[in-house]
Every structure is written in structure tokens, then in C-alpha cells.
Amino acid sequence: MTVSIEPLDPSAERLARLTGDRCKARDAAGRLKALTDKIDEEELAAEAEVFRAISDPFRLSILKLLRDGELCVCEIMTALDRPQSSTSHHLSILKRAGLVKERKEGKWSRYRLADGAVIDLMKLAEILRGG
């Protein structure tokens, strides 16, 4: 009498090789598939863009300045001692990531935080670093 062993999907096979238990590997692979099916690639890309935007120290400085209210580009560049072109470039990255909003006032552009969640995000970063 021969015992037939049903083939496992590649994920379960990999887990079975690592754990040595085919049944547990099949169950774990099923759970992992259910978890990964919940991940939306477009949302993931948008969320990664937010983290990339705040990962630059200069952009994070801009966000910290804007915690206390709206500022124009000239005020931000003066406060952080950076050229206008660099400041505008970084503001456009923050705007594209949805972290700041722009308001035109004549020839001036004024910026503010998009909403309170940006402040919460900065507070969480402070908490995570232990500060």
C-alpha cells in the first residue's frame, strides 16, 4: 500500500522545509495568504510616499515649523536658512504626499499642515525614538 501525499503550494512547501511539519505549514500558508490578500498595493505605495516624504530631515523641519500655523515659502526658507528653490522643492514633495496644503495669496504661496494627523504622526515618531 502506498501513501500519497498531496502536493503543497510553494509557500506551504517552503514553510514545511523550514518547520518540518507539513500540516502546520499548510495552515500557516493559508493564514499568510489571507493576510497578504488584505494588502492593497496602491494604498501601500501611497503610504510609502508619506514615509519617504517625512524621512528627510529638512522636510521634517518644515513640518515642525508648520505645527504652529501657516507660513509662506519666504518665511520657511528664512527660518531654515535654505534657498527658495530647495524649500519649494521640498514643499512640493510634502504636498504630493498629502502632508501639507497650499493656499495662494496673490503671488505668495502659504503652507499649512494638511490636518491634525500630521502632528500625531510626528508625536508618534518622538515616542518611538524614546523622547
Rank of each mutant, 00 (worst) to 15 (best):
M1S: 15
M1D: 14
T2A: 15
V3S: 10
S4C: 05
I5P: 00
E6Q: 13
P7A: 15
P7N: 06
L8W: 06
A12M: 09
A12I: 07
R14M: 08
R14E: 06
A16V: 04
A16T: 05
L18M: 13
L18F: 05
D21G: 01
D21S: 11
R22Y: 01
C23H: 14
K24Y: 02
D27W: 11
A29P: 01
G30F: 07
R31W: 12
R31V: 14
R31T: 13
R31H: 11
R31L: 14
K33V: 05
A34F: 10
A34L: 13
L35I: 11
T36S: 14
T36V: 11
D37Y: 04
D37W: 03
K38A: 13
D40H: 06
E41Y: 03
E41C: 02
E42W: 06
E42T: 14
E43T: 09
E43P: 00
L44M: 12
L44S: 09
L44C: 07
A45P: 03
A46R: 15
A46D: 10
A48H: 02
A48R: 07
E49V: 01
V50D: 00
V50Q: 01
V50K: 09
R52I: 00
I54K: 00
S55E: 08
D56F: 04
D56G: 05
D56K: 12
P57Y: 02
F58W: 02
R59K: 09
L60W: 01
L60N: 03
L60K: 04
S61P: 03
I62L: 08
I62W: 05
I62V: 15
L63W: 05
K64P: 01
L65D: 05
L65Q: 14
L65A: 07
L66N: 06
L66Q: 02
D68Y: 10
D68L: 07
E70C: 03
E70N: 04
L71P: 00
L71T: 02
L71C: 07
C74S: 14
E75V: 01
E75R: 09
I76P: 00
I76R: 03
T78L: 11
T78Y: 08
T78W: 07
A79K: 12
A79Y: 03
L80K: 01
D81Q: 12
R82W: 09
P83W: 00
Q84W: 10
S85C: 02
S86E: 12
T87H: 02
T87L: 09
T87K: 01
S88N: 08
S88H: 07
S88L: 12
H89W: 13
L91F: 08
L91H: 03
I93Q: 09
L94Y: 02
K95G: 00
G98S: 05
G98K: 12
G98A: 05
L99F: 04
L99C: 02
E102T: 07
E105H: 06
G106I: 06
G106D: 13
K107A: 10
W108V: 11
W108Y: 12
S109I: 04
R110T: 04
Y111F: 15
R112V: 12
L113I: 09
A114E: 12
D115E: 09
D115Y: 08
G116I: 05
A117K: 15
A117V: 09
D120K: 15
L121V: 07
M122C: 05
M122S: 01
K123A: 08
L124Y: 14
A125F: 10
A125V: 11
A125D: 11
A125K: 12
I127F: 11
I127Q: 09
R129D: 08
G131L: 08
